[in-house]
Design a protein around this nucleic acid. Structure first.
Lengths: 348, 348
DNA sequence: TTGTAGGCGTTATCAA
DNA sequence: TTGATAACGCCTACAA
């Protein structure tokens, strides 16, 4: 042994099989910058070197290190996603859409929960920024428009469920109002006149819009709004169950119930069951979202289809476009009523 | 203007308000290394400097950059989580537990889906490694024990649902076998003898164990296993529904059904409904997991409680302990039967 | 078109 | 106990 141990660097492979850009450069006989340029398409490179480098990349199994990229001011190939509660079936489906779509472009999502809490949400975004994500997708939430817009100054941002404008900011919403109208209309067409409504948390535009749709349909049918038939809740199963109790404690009788999301509808169903009211025999029930759970509810739940998965895909697609420097345009399917077995024509 | 523009560096705050460790050092009148040492507790530092640095950190609102840390070989304060399908209600609850617990220690989870697919899972882990996560939590999955163990050579790892050993490797399982026994026993106690069983994907230890529990209970009661009453499925609602069809196509009659998770039970319920079989009047039904959906199923589902949320918390706790260099020990609650309305005493 | 040099924000290694 | 100094792996002027 004549060589001293320390500089014993085997150029082509380190202990754990991590290959660096520098090694690729060496193997291809070019400079690191050239490799970088080829990787990022930053500048024109001669075809010969391009080939050599690509061969080297393949041979060595090189994969750029996102962490180093992030530090160097480049991209991290990761996009932050602010959800509210990661365990909710609603967000679950959206996240799946986001993950799948992002993956196609080599991006990885970083999910953080806002817990329907302004501070948490703020912290979530900070976390994301400190992790150098390339962009942020915000699903609903409580942060003010101003605050979100400000973040978008330094980062591409996609916001679902609001209307915001900005150079690096894209937002889109599902047509919740139309959805709310369809649901209510369906009930009216079945002959119902006394239709109760469980609103979601009215801090959300979504919730408000669904309620507006409810009003629209009633108005169109010449049915007066009865405040006794409206309760506000929180989009959870437990909330839906509670809402039904409150509704039943009042004097107003109703033959149909429109819960502004599936989770509350499911909860309401149990609440009705507890009072010995049958769905749809005693009360017709409509939900909103068409989550998987709606299909498997008992009875299967009539609801308004908004493909949450598609919304996730849409958000991711928009983000990728933004990242590409383009102008996203997302075409969401129109809301549609899915009639199942929880609603029935009024016969009495 | 006598100074030339380029070096115009305002030491205390850059355009976007990002403060670096170096700035903290400067403000506190110490070297960057000292700041780093204080941050990481790497070495002893005089109290005076410690105070000064901490004051500077507070004043400047400094937050260490995880990306830079990751590059420098330090920690990224992030742990990777390999789930199977992020949209599943089961994983949702687990992820929530993981996220909450990790957050308490300043860690952020990175979720990636394995999609019940070996290749995806392998890729997921690679992604995680290239992102320099400090550790990996694996929830079930198809990767071989050997492969997982190998990954654990270079990284702390927690595996849920298997038995693996290793210096940086910790694994724990819920007592699925006992759970399966409890479920079946409950049915037997209600007088049922012909108890059908829907197994999960038997690639999972979990699924196998639940089935073993089913066998255990039958054996203890002196009931012979009837292969006609057993079908294998895939842990999804759709799978549960399909399983019921297959069961009913066979000649064997049954008065009770044990589905080895809640999702399949819910699906089975719909399947029975389609054949005009009532739960629990015609068939008593038991699930497994006690997800939220069980509570709100119609009728509310009798099931075996395993707190998926707790499992998530446990996995995270174990990981933090591993990261701390300690030996984790997770105490999971015993499985327990939660009797609700989907089962009833056989009267015929 | 290509290469060199410097920097991104931390941590780790050595001296002092 | 402290502080230079050199990585970490990549990107991006700048120069050639």
């Amino acid at each position: 042994m004549t060589t001293k141990p320390p500089p014993m660097k085997a150029p082509s492979s380190r202990p754990d099989g991590v290959v660096t850009l520098e090694q690729v450069a060496e193997q291809a006989g070019v400079s690191p910058s050239t490799v970088s340029r080829i990787l990022n398409g930053t500048a024109a490179v001669s075809q010969a070197k391009k080939d050599a480098v690509q061969a080297a990349i393949r041979d060595l199994g090189f994969r750029p290190n996102p962490v180093a990229r992030g530090l160097a001011g480049g991209r991290t190939l990761s996009v932050g996603v602010v959800t509210q509660i990661i365990s909710s079936p609603f967000y679950g489906e959206a996240l799946l859409g986001i993950e799948r779509e992002l993956e196609r472009a080599g991006y990885v999502p970083m999910f953080v929960s806002g817990n329907w809490h302004e501070d948490d949400e703020r912290k979530a975004i900070e976390t994301l920024l400190s992790r150098r994500v390339d962009g942020v997708i915000v699903l609903a939430g409580r942060l003010s428009d101003a605050e979100l817009t400000k973040v978008a100054d330094s980062l591409p941002m996609v916001v679902v469920g609001r209307q915001l404008e900005g150079p690096q900011l894209f937002s889109f919403s599902f047509d919740n109002r139309l959805g709310g109208r369809l649901a209510t209309q369906h009930l009216i067409e079945q002959g119902h006149r006394r239709i109760a409504f469980i609103a979601g948390d009215l801090i959300h535009e979504d919730a408000v819009e669904r309620q507006n749709g409810y009003f629209d349909a009633l108005a169109a049918a010449g049915i007066a709004v009865d405040p006794n038939l409206i309760v506000q809740s929180d989009f959870t199963e437990a909330g839906g169950m509670l809402a039904v109790s409150r509704l039943l404690e009042r004097d107003g009788r109703f033959t149909a119930l429109f819960a502004s999301n599936d989770q509350m509808a499911i909860g309401a169903c149990l609440g009705l069951h507890r009072r010995n009211l049958r769905v749809p025999d005693d009360v017709s029930l409509v939900g909103f979202d068409d989550l998987i759970m709606a299909r498997y509810a008992m009875p299967p739940l009539t609801t308004v289809r908004q493909s949450v998965y598609e919304i996730g895909v849409g958000a991711a697609t928009a983000m990728l476009e933004l990242l590409r420097g383009g102008k996203p345009k997302v075409q969401l399917p129109e809301p549609a009523l899915v009639a199942r077995e929880s609603t029935r024509r009024m016969t009495r």
